[in-house]
């Protein structure tokens, strides 16, 4: 009985790390999938194609992570995934910045248009004053 228990414990001792590694691989797999989904979402949001290169890099990094996971280089996978997470956050902020930049352009164009409209209105006012003066002289 003691001998069987010892064997069992030995086998259990061997199985625990194996199970832990399998769980880590799955976890990394989920992370990779999540980040790939994130990449797709970010690409959809990038209607101005401002972060195209960053997304391309991210995809290649994720491919690399996948390869490393296949090679069971989990530590390296985590490093790459950390980078990908940071990249994703950076891309989000760049997208926001790009949108804001577009808003700036739109706003400044609006200001330009308003200035132009104001200039036209002032010109029309001057013209109207001249016309009024002419009519006052006539009447």
């Amino acid at each position: 009985m003691t001998r069987y228990a010892t064997i069992f414990l030995f086998l259990a001792f061997l199985a625990v790390p194996l199970a832990a590694r399998a769980g880590e691989a799955d976890d990394l797999q989920r992370q990779i999938d999540y980040l790939k989904q994130t990449t797709n979402d970010l690409e959809r949001q990038d209607d101005q194609k401002t972060v195209n290169t960053d997304i391309t890099f991210m995809r290649s990094w994720l491919d690399n992570a996948w390869t490393l996971r296949s090679q069971e280089k989990y530590e390296e996978v985590r490093i790459v995934l950390d980078r990908c997470n940071a990249q994703a956050n950076m891309v989000r902020q760049r997208l926001v910045a790009a949108k804001l930049a577009a808003q700036v352009v739109a706003k400044e164009n609006e200001v330009k248009r308003a200035r132009s409209q104001l200039a036209r209105t002032k010109k029309a006012l001057e013209k109207a004053k001249l016309e009024k003066a002419r009519l006052e002289g006539k009447v």
Partner: peptide
């Protein structure tokens, strides 16, 4: 990535400031 992240945030602030300035001007 960190630098560019920081730059993006600074750009956002700059854009926000320009938007506010444009809105004021508007």
């Amino acid at each position: 990535i960190f630098y560019r992240h920081a730059l993006a945030l600074a750009d956002q602030d700059k854009s926000n400031a320009r938007i506010a300035e444009a809105e004021d001007a508007l």
